[in-house]
Design a protein around this nucleic acid. Structure first.
Length: 306
RNA sequence: GGCGCCGUAGCCAAGUGGCAAGGCAGAGGUCUGCAAAACCUCCAUCCCCAGUUCGAUUCUGGGCGGCGCCU
């Protein structure tokens, strides 16, 4: 695939691997990276946190020895991280990769992170205000709604969704109305070539069951406990993720050891469906079944675009 | 064999003589700084038969099934 390789060396196109959790995006991105002599920029809201490796599905040490990974394993698990931090870090990583004359491949699970990066979401530019959030979170829905509508009569957010309304108020108090003018996109100086990986739902479900079981066997509970032991609060974003949330429930005695992987698989199932729905509506995604090995077809597709 | 209780969606479960709450699971959807989050929508003629009644899931009788106790 010399053609594809050259085109990506020209640094105009960046392959972006998307799809539901558990479908093998990571493995495919790894193989693609070897093929293109590329480095991988992971777009995942949980893999950024240090030490929590098992349920975040971080790349293996073998993979990390063979390919350079970015945006993985660098944030204190007790800290919080968000989409804006991600976009900044990922853009820096991409610039760095390019400067070194190498090729980036983006691989992502977190839908907002991928879109915010590849479509250049402004995210309004207003950082979180923890005190204001704490105050607003204590309010009931209708009070929150009144407070929001008083600031902006047409904020364009779901008036049933407290999280969205709190954020909208936070932005409006910092900038003034109208909110909608702040949600802009400034596309990056490269084009994302979205590659979607998919499979029949029953196949995905089976893989998720298997993976959940394996994660428990690999020491998920001990990993969760050791995070608690070093002072990571139970409410830390990583620990609310699939796998850790259930492991915590088990540690608290709310889930048996047999229920643990089952519950993890169920929550993963729901997440996978949500990811599928998100990407399905994006016509820019070109889909590939995982069943016969999709790598040759993907390389061919990338070559044709380049 | 006798007595008592029960039988509502895949599961748990409330309820009423006037076309059946809620939760979980499931399906679909929304998404611009917590996104593995948050939110929205959809999803049952109430075990069967007969009777009472204008009308029964709700009342009566019988059947079937389950649970408990007793002999």
């Amino acid at each position: 695939m010399a053609g594809a390789h050259a085109a990506f060396q020209a640094q105009l196109l960046i392959p972006v691997i998307v799809g539901p959790t558990g479908i093998g995006k990571s493995e495919l991105a790894f193989r693609l990276a070897l093929e293109l002599n590329a480095e991988i920029v992971v777009a995942d809201s949980k893999q950024v946190y240090q030490r929590l490796d098992i349920a975040t599905n971080k790349p293996s040490v073998e993979h990390r020895r063979a390919v350079r990974y970015h945006m993985v394993d660098f944030v204190d698990p007790a800290a919080s991280f968000n989409a804006a931090h991600y976009v900044r870090g990922a853009n820096d990583a991409i610039a760095d990769i390019k400067m070194r004359g190498r090729v980036p491949v983006i691989e992502g699970g977190t839908m907002l992170y991928v879109d915010a990066l590849c479509d250049g979401f402004s995210l309004t530019g207003v950082p979180p205000d923890p005190e204001l959030r704490a105050e607003l979170e204590a309010l009931d829905l209708s009070t929150l709604r009144e407070r929001l509508l008083a600031l902006d009569s047409d904020p364009g957010v779901d008036l049933h969704n407290p999280v969205r309304m709190v954020r909208a108020i936070e932005v409006l108090e910092a900038t003034g109305p109208p909110l909608q003018r702040l949600r802009t996109r400034t596309p990056p100086p490269w084009e994302a070539l979205r590659i979607g990986l998919t499979a029949p739902l029953d196949v995905i479900d089976r893989r998720l069951e298997e993976r959940s079981r394996r994660q428990v066997e690999r020491g998920l509970i001990a990993e969760t406990q050791s995070a608690l032991d070093v002072g990571v609060p139970e409410t830390a974003p990583v620990l609310t993720g699939i796998g850790y949330a259930e492991a915590l429930a088990h540690i608290r005695g709310e889930l048996t050891l047999e229920e643990l992987p089952q519950t993890m698989a169920r929550n993963n199932r729901r997440y996978a469906r949500r990811q599928l729905r998100w990407w399905r509506r994006d016509a820019r995604v070109t889909w590939f079944e995982i069943e016969p090995d999709p790598l040759p077809a993907i390389l061919k597709h990338l070559g044709s675009k380049a």
